[in-house]
Amino acid sequence: MHGRENSLRENVWLACRLCYRQRMRQFLDFEKSVAELENKIDELRRMSGPDGINIAEEITRLSEKADRQLRAAYAKLTPGQKVQVARHAQRPHTVDYISTLITEFSPLAGDRLFGEDKAIIGGIGRFRNQPVVVIGTERGAEIETRLKHNFGMARPEGYRKAQRLMKLAGRFGLPVLTFIDTSGAWPGIDAEARGQAEAIARSIETCLTVPVPVIATVIGEGGSGGAVALGAGDRVMMLEHAIYSVISPEACASILWRDPKQAATAADALRLTAQDLLQLRLIDRIIPEPLGGAQREPQVAIRAVGDAIAAELPALLAKDPALLKAQRREKFLAMGREAVA
C-alpha cells in the first residue's frame, strides 16, 4: 500500500514539475469548454503544414470563440469561482512582481531574533526609480519552492522580519510596498510557541505607525490575520479576481454550516471579492486583470499592478508624515462605523 502511495506521489510530483517547466496551462473546472477549444487549436497548429490557409482560418475562428467564452465566464464569476482563480497556481507571485517591477533589488533576511522565514520575502530596491522597501508573502510555484516558502504561510519570525523592514523603511523615508498572497499564518506548534498572535498584532501596529506611505496589494488570496498583518496600509488595492477574507470559505462552511461542501455558499455570504470589498469601502482600488485572469498573462497583470502603485504613490509621498499617519488611522477607524450600501 505504502509503495503504491509513494509512486503515486512521485507521479504527481513529476506531473507538477513538467507542467511548470512547460508552462502548460492549468484550467479550472468552469473553464472546461475553453480548455477543449484551446486543445483543438493546439492540435490544428501541430497539424498545419505549408498549405495551412484553411487551418489558419479555423484557428482564428476557434480562438475568437474561446475568447468569447472566456470573456463570458470571467464577466460573471461567482465568489466561489473567484476563490479558485485567486488561488490558481499559475498566477504571478510576489517573486514575479519583484523581479518585474523592482530594479536594483537587494533581498533582506531574518528577524534578528530567531530566524529567517521564507514565507515572507522582502528587500530594498527601486520602483520606477523611487527607492522602496518591498515585503510580501510568497507561496512558491512548484513543489521545491512551495516547501521552501512554506506555501506562503508565515511564522512569527516572518512577521517580525516584516516589522524590521517596515521600521527600516520608516527610518530612511522609503515607502513600503506589500504584496499579499497567503491562505493565512502558519498554524503550527512552533509558531504558537514563538508568539504568532503577538507577531501579527505587532505587525499590524507597525503598518499603522510607520511614518512613510504603505501600499498593500492583494495579488491572490488574502487570508485572514496572516494577510492583514501586511495589509493595514494607506492604500489597500486588490487585483480584480483576488479575494480577501476573515476566514477561508472552507473553514467558514465547516463551522457555520457544519459542512465543508458548502464552501461556495460561504464564499457568497462572506463578501470576499474585490468588488464587494470596494463597495463596503474596506479597500481603495481594484486593479483590472487580463482576460481570463492574471494567470493567463502574468506580465500584463504585473504591469497593471505597477501602474496602480505608480498612480497612488506620488500623492502619498507628498504628504507630511504626521498627516499621512493620521489619515491612515482615520481610514481604519471608519471601518464598520457607518452603514454602506
Partner: peptide, 22 residues
C-alpha cells in the same frame, strides 16, 4: 476570534482596535 458573520468588517477590527491602543 473574529465574528465570521461580519466578514471582512470583522477582520478590519484588528487594525481598528490597534489604532485605539496607539
Amino acid at each position: 476570534g473574529a465574528r465570521m458573520q461580519e466578514g471582512m468588517i470583522s477582520l478590519m477590527q484588528m487594525p481598528r482596535t490597534t489604532v485605539a491602543v496607539e
